[in-house]
Design a protein around this nucleic acid. Sequence first.
DNA 1: GTGAAAGCGCTAACAC
DNA 2: GTGTTAGCGCTTTCAC
Lengths: 327, 327
Amino acid sequence: MRATIRDVAREAGVSIATVSRVLRDSGAVRAETRDRVLAAAGELEFVPSQLGRQLAERRHAANGIVFPDLSGPYYAEVVLGYESVAAELGRSVLILSTRGRDDAEAAVQAMAERCDGLVVLGRTVPDAAIERLAARGASIVLVARPPVGGVDSVNARNRQGARALTEHLLDLGVRSLVYVGDPSTSPDVAERMRGIQEALPPDAELRLHHVDALDEESGARIVGDYLTRALPDAFVCANDELALGLLGRLRAAGVDIPGRVQVTGWDDVMAARYAGLTTVRQPMRELGATAARLLDELIGGTRTHPRHELLPTELVVRTTTLGKVSP
Amino acid sequence: MRATIRDVAREAGVSIATVSRVLRDSGAVRAETRDRVLAAAGELEFVPSQLGRQLAERRHAANGIVFPDLSGPYYAEVVLGYESVAAELGRSVLILSTRGRDDAEAAVQAMAERCDGLVVLGRTVPDAAIERLAARGASIVLVARPPVGGVDSVNARNRQGARALTEHLLDLGVRSLVYVGDPSTSPDVAERMRGIQEALPPDAELRLHHVDALDEESGARIVGDYLTRALPDAFVCANDELALGLLGRLRAAGVDIPGRVQVTGWDDVMAARYAGLTTVRQPMRELGATAARLLDELIGGTRTHPRHELLPTELVVRTTTLGKVSP
DNA sequence: GTGAAAGCGCTAACAC
DNA sequence: GTGTTAGCGCTTTCAC
């Protein structure tokens, strides 16, 4: 059995309160006593039980993060940014992936009981679940998801990025675009579409091509629909994976890109560089880091009014949009 | 303030022991009493404190996982595989990234105090640290790292994969190969090189080109050394990122691939497909899942003898090795 | 079947 | 400065 604070107290000939003081460096302790305690602790290889400490302090010293997946680079980067700041702040990080989970809400609820606050990414659980948690007094920060009630949020400037992307395409002569994605899968996807619409002049046309999933396969699958009839001037895809799938199939069909049709993605994943894909980069790590800081303020009670951070995006132009359309 | 078990007991007119029994479904409780307790708990919106429960049970019901990074797809997938099994087993998952941390060992030690067991990926902390933890009675499973002392481990068959890859190259006529990587960065990288050596006949030559990091930039940087002097028949890279960087630079220099030189990677990341890179795939998710199961046995005390699992790898042949060398 | 009571290992008033 | 003591919120014997 491991040594407890009582063992150390006995060994050092002091009370447990003194041991606690020395170890936490709280309260004044005479140097000589202090040394005795440290010696005893060292002798017994004493490591304070986090379980006991947490219960006494009534805090977990841990934060959770809920995400749909970790496969793409997107969420992985956000999680990393979050973890590094949380660690600096002395908090452990609990993770929860909702992928393939039918009881996501229950899992999040359970997780909330094991940490002092949590970050929720994207469309992992319904708004109602967020509100229930918030109502129970949980500290929550939403990322890549529009604000709900008085809950903090951190988002990338999707609309702004989409407008920049659209203007870039318009400059190249694009007049008809197809947005590939499903606005209902994630708030980001919906916001991007809105941004495009905002930037579009009356003489340009935007259609939505709905796909079930934001993966390569879905991107490839829709190409068939366009080979038999007219191609638009540009395919604007909700994310890079979709764009990469679409791009591969188009090229395989001998379609000239960007001569005949231009293609864009979103996220700037590593493969986008190899494919020469024009895309929009988001500060993924910074999204996570910002969330960690907001959450810390919330838990620490430093702040009571909700905050909603918006982080910048950046257009990355590559070869899938370099050509001029009908010059 | 939240309701405690005492509030529920008072409300239901029973003792806290009975409330505990009902909520944990342990011990026999009369149906009528049971209903009263459940009603009271519902009324008060009682949710048992994990802090109290954990201390009483003296367990965290959480496992940790330590990894170097989450940027590449490799560790992310392992973590996901781990998380999904851990969740099934009713355990929370704590994460710890050692990237850019100079106090990695202390951080791991701290994490060990907050969970019932942990998984350590790759070369995150020195063997001595693992041994110290194990000596203190921690339950540990190593992944992508050779066994240390009596600690469990899960690895992919690196040697086997490397042999298959080497034989594939030999079949194509390759006789001189350069292994690009740093065997000291990770045990996997070293094992792969060993596998190549084992498969090589006396008339074939293998050299090691040492790089500092396993990223694209390092891969690209070494190309210059070969443009002025002789190229080998094949570059076998320690991972895909290295190979992708090297590939890009070679192609930019007008080198015919695979006609003049063949290139291979390792991991089969998404970008590898777009680059047509021949590589070796590992069951990343399964590595994590297996680790979770081993750890559970360890924590549960089901098993005392260490186990060392080896999972299969798979050669994925693409266009960077399709041609015949000097037919 | 149910309750009283003794912990689990710590922190933090409060007293001296 | 240091010790005593009362919790933190639960689980779990052991009586009855």
